[in-house]
Design a protein around this nucleic acid. Structure first.
Ligand SMILES: [Mn+2]
Ligand SMILES: [Mn+2]
Ligand SMILES: [Mn+2]
Ligand SMILES: [Mn+2]
Lengths: 229, 229
DNA sequence: ATTAAAATTTAGACAAATCTAAAAATTTGT
DNA sequence: ACAAATTTTTAGATTTGTCTAAATTTTAAT
């Protein structure tokens, strides 16, 4: 009847593990390694094993000793719900409270654990149902559905093509502040003019202005190819 | 230089105890009894004693065995900061997310523990620096200063006087929904027409409309006396 | 196919926050 | 003043989430 994602008591720690397993499961093989979780969460592998057992008890993950871990359907839904909250709060902080995009993550890490369906639905409405967060990442809808936007890394597109900057791969404060300093933001029109043989750095034109960026920078910027160049 | 109220790691549980001690210390003697805390927090006295010792270690409360507990200056400031957050979030929920005044408390209990000075300052600005929460309770400013509004219980004023309804003493969902059902809200002009000898119930005129309310209801409504009756 | 290295799990300990049951101190009633 | 009732504290146990150190399993290398 009324489909609850997971009202059943989940601790903050459990939610963080589920979220981490989700993120690691996306990029790479389905089965997530204990050590990978430990590294991302800055904790010890033994702690991870302990928690995995608890999550397994609650049917949030599939677990076979020594074989890695993966989310169950319930775990997946739970993860998407937390990510939805995280990203909606990030939009709120930027749109309504004038946070910059490098300041939102830390606070969203706290806000994502607030339990109230009504709260998050109302927030969604207040923000006019945004589809993407300040870093260009998609916001799952209340059923956990979301569309991965069609996009490519700027470092992957050939010379003389381009598009609109729609996201960042690395969303660390350091990188985001670097982008601010250099006047690079989501929505900018970017065109690759030339790629240096020597170090792979790119000469680009961004909203009419010419500049040079390193390969590392380009490999952390997503663009959506525009047909008319 | 930069005066932090209490950035130093406080757990959610510690914050809840501090808040409870603050509320109990206001109405009554300064020293708060262990059992009173336990009852309000729906926990056991032995748990309270344990926590009091921890809070005492951190110089948030003054404690002498068997003699009750009181907040230190630091504890007081901490309590006011939590209450500020609680009440600002309540205003946000009502003003921006269309919550009704009986729905906000539960969510605010969670939101009050989010740690971010910038967040709460920005929220304050978004809400245009409100002075009172949806239940008429004053919102401390960022230095912990707040003015207890000049107000009296409706049950205490003499016949033929009145004023504006500015707050509720009991802010339980049950009472608030009762008020909604009977069209009583903050801002209403209330005048006491007659007080029944028999059971103390009151005939009142509220925004022009006549009605009868029990003594219990009247003793949970605050009004601010208006000079012109 | 063994052995070495790496990953993972277990065992045992610890701090936070809670509980129950029992002991100690305080307050109350006569 | 002194026994009884009440309040408060202590002692010991439990759950959650973490750690270190040691054992086990898997993977990689020769
Ligand atoms: Mn984030
Ligand atoms: Mn984001
Ligand atoms: Mn409240
Ligand atoms: Mn309130």
């Amino acid at each position: 009847m009324y489909f609850c994602v997971n009202k059943y008591l989940m601790t903050r720690s459990e939610e963080n593990y589920i979220k981490t397993i989700f993120h690691l499961g996306r990029k790479g093989t389905q089965e997530v390694a204990t050590n990978a979780i430990a590294e991302l969460m800055e904790t010890k592998p033994s702690s991870v094993t302990d928690m995995i057992k608890r999550l397994s008890e609650k049917d949030l993950v599939n677990y076979k000793r020594y074989q890695g871990v993966s989310l169950t359907a319930l775990g997946n839904k739970t993860a998407l719900n937390i990510i939805r909250k995280h990203r909606l709060w990030e939009v709120f902080l930027v749109e309504k409270l004038d946070f910059s995009w490098d300041e939102v993550h830390e606070v969203a890490e706290q806000l994502e654990h607030i339990k109230s369906d009504k709260l998050i639905d109302s927030l969604d409405r207040l923000l006019a149902y945004p589809k993407f967060d300040p870093h260009g990442d998609p916001i799952p809808d209340k059923n956990g559905g979301f569309k991965e936007r069609d996009r490519e890394l700027l470092s992957e597109v050939p010379v003389n093509t381009g598009g609109v900057c729609v996201g960042v791969k690395d969303s660390s404060a350091t990188f985001l502040k670097f982008l601010d300093k250099n006047g690079i933001a989501l929505g900018n029109q970017i065109k690759v003019m030339e790629i240096e043989e020597f170090d792979g750095s790119l000469n680009i034109e961004i909203d009419g202005r010419k500049m040079q960026i390193s390969h590392v920078i380009a490999s952390n910027l997503y663009i959506k190819a525009s047909d008319e160049i």
